[in-house]
Design a protein around this nucleic acid. Structure first.
Lengths: 148, 148
DNA sequence: AATGTAAATGCGAATCATTCGCATTTAGTA
DNA sequence: TACTAAATGCGAATGATTCGCATTTACATT
């Protein structure tokens, strides 16, 4: 990781009122470099792989901090009992999920932007992200269930 | 619970290819009578309160079954590490959630219906419900965080 | 640059939601 | 009424997450 990158992150953490520590930077980077949401344990393992020392409890504590500061969001995947974390961005991908086989299909179009402006005006919230899951049955499972 | 109600539920369970058991009916009714999503333990406790015997593992097993059959959905509340279950309905309420104080504000308008028809055509899914959470900071927390 | 202090971390134990194995019971059918 | 596969109860096991406390660290101040 370059010195310049390091410095940029320090500024980002400080701006949000967080102390800058080695561990926080490590977690930050693992999340930043991932394309998909990660569990606490994913992050812990990846850091071990990189020979970076951190304790699992610290990973959890850092994730909680980042979540409270609105840097990342914590959600869960359907049918998994563990939390996943990812950077918040305004163009979150959404999913169509089959309730039976639990297949996930990404949805391109996002209908949320249209109502955002209106919500901001009404609630004074500062909106930083959102999540949309649509539930149903895929064609295959519909067939399977009809047979039963 | 009236005999007529009992019978209606039996038909509903059978139609979806499920055996009708005392325990399934009990869980079904607790969910049906609740306005808000419930955890497995909520359901277990409510049934104990009613002096209805059921084991907690059975509650979990019934909830999993109902989920796979598309009767209910399993989701999680922000910042809680346990699943909640509720009947699926097409007019799910959505929430605006403050990342800092975890306050939930219900949103009236739902932007999902508009894209549903299009999704069905493209994917052949049978859509039965959806969930939308919007993340942000409430006005109070924005102020608090500026001061820090 | 050295110091002081509140905050952050590491470690292991504790907690709590959820799942599993297996013996027993039950729903639905013949 | 009897049969059989499926459902349940119970308690133990699992696995994610949190907590307590001793140690270390960031960073503001001298």
């Amino acid at each position: 990781m370059s010195k310049r990158t390091m410095q940029r992150d320090q500024i980002e953490l400080h701006q949000r009122g967080m102390k800058n520590t080695k561990q926080r930077n490590m977690v930050y980077h693992v999340l930043k470099q991932s394309e998909s949401p990660l569990t606490a344990d994913d992050i812990f393992s990846e850091l071990q792989r990189q020979s970076c020392h951190i304790s699992l409890s610290t990973v959890y504590r850092v994730l909680e901090l980042f979540t409270d500061r609105g840097l990342i969001i914590k959600t869960t995947l359907l049918l998994q009992n563990k939390a996943v974390y990812e950077f918040i961005n305004k163009d979150q991908t959404h999913y169509l999920i089959c309730m039976h086989c639990h297949r996930n299909i990404p949805i391109e179009y996002c209908p949320v932007h249209e109502i955002e402006e209106d919500l901001v005006r009404k609630t004074q919230f500062k909106i930083i992200g959102h999540r949309l899951d649509i539930y149903g049955f895929c064609p295959e499972c519909q067939k399977k269930m009809d047979k039963e």
